[in-house]
């Protein structure tokens, strides 16, 4: 069952088309990357998923049902533009947000205690938000996002503003939620994070869906059949490889483009038979970053 299905969704603001017939679906339990350059329409899409706004046309289905006002309680959303009431005590603040997500008073208190113990921040309950450092506020914000055990978690640039230690901590929490079956939408332009975390991605540019699928399939789809052979000793002279398409050659390694019906095994055997000492033989897959840039076009990236 797909936790989320976006079907030809369109959203226009004034005369600007923010989202133009975007469609994709997201299976339950995956970590899903929502990618795109600034202004591509990611936030507009997320706002529609969180029922903040409604699509002009098209449909959004949550767990097979048409999205309605009962669903926000099953969604946890951490926006990119996030904040807390500065003057409120952390404990009171989390109680407030948890109850707004439909938890009862006692449920909310128990859940917050549980998280405070887990993250070793029990002394925070009576601290005002403004007394916390930015990173600590982010932690509190994260708790507020997951306190009601959402089925779908939407994180928009969750690591921005976090130091490496806290980012790692947060990442581990995300993995744990993932392990427990939470479906997670992860929106960012940091491609290395996507590659590390996400199972599936959708890439949006100028309001349109340009790429959609599993990360490994996409990499396969964009591969250029490049292979790299590393040698254990410097090779001044190579055996006869002229029939091959050499992209780059140094004494330490050689990069080949294997085309047509040539097989990597045949080439490898040929080299081994010629007595070339081989340390590694790898297929070079494009990074998501490269794919992103190629798809979106350098002119589009404003950062």
């Amino acid at each position: 069952m797909d936790i989320l299905k976006i079907d030809k969704v369109v959203k226009t603001y004034d005369k600007h088309i923010a989202v133009n017939e975007v469609s994709f679906s997201m299976p339950e339990g995956v970590i899903f990357g929502l990618l795109g350059p600034n202004g591509a329409g990611k936030s507009s899409l997320i706002r529609m998923i969180t029922t903040i706004t409604r699509p002009d046309s098209g449909h959004i289905y949550f767990n097979g049902e048409s999205l309605n006002s009962s669903h926000p309680e099953q969604i946890g959303y951490m926006p990119e533009e996030r904040g807390l009431y500065k003057k409120m005590k952390v404990g009171d603040h989390l109680m407030y947000l948890a109850q707004l997500k439909g938890l009862s008073y006692t449920e909310a208190r128990e859940e917050i205690r549980h998280w405070f113990v887990k993250l070793d921040i029990t002394s925070w309950w009576n601290k005002k938000v403004e007394e916390l450092s930015k990173g600590m506020q982010q932690k509190a914000q994260f708790i507020s996002t997951v306190i009601h055990k959402p089925r779908l978690l939407i994180l928009d640039e969750p690591f921005s503003g976090l130091d490496p230690v806290n980012a790692e901590l947060l990442k581990n929490e995300i993995y744990e939620l993932h392990k427990n079956g939470t479906s997670i939408i992860f929106s960012t332009h940091r491609m290395e994070q996507v590659e590390e975390i996400c199972d599936k991605i959708v890439l949006i540019n100028k309001g349109e869906n340009v790429l959609y699928g599993a990360v490994k399939d996409i990499k396969q789809q964009f591969k250029e059949n490049l292979f790299r052979i590393d040698f254990t000793e410097d090779q001044a002279l190579l055996p006869d490889l002229r029939s091959l398409n050499i992209v780059e050659q140094t004494p330490q390694y050689v990069t080949l483009k294997i085309t047509g019906n040539q097989e990597s095994n045949v080439i490898l055997r040929h080299l081994l038979d010629s007595g070339v000492p081989i340390r590694a033989f790898n297929e070079i897959l494009p990074s998501l970053n490269e794919i992103f840039i190629r798809q979106v076009g350098e002119s589009n990236i404003q950062q």
């Binding site: 969180t50 903040i52 926000p72 969604i75 959303y77 926006p79 807390l84 997500k101």
Partner: peptide, 12 residues
């Protein structure tokens, strides 16, 4: 300005 509002209106 404190950016709490988007958090809020994802619940209410």
């Amino acid at each position: 300005t404190s950016r709490i509002v988007e958090v809020m209106i994802s619940s209410v």
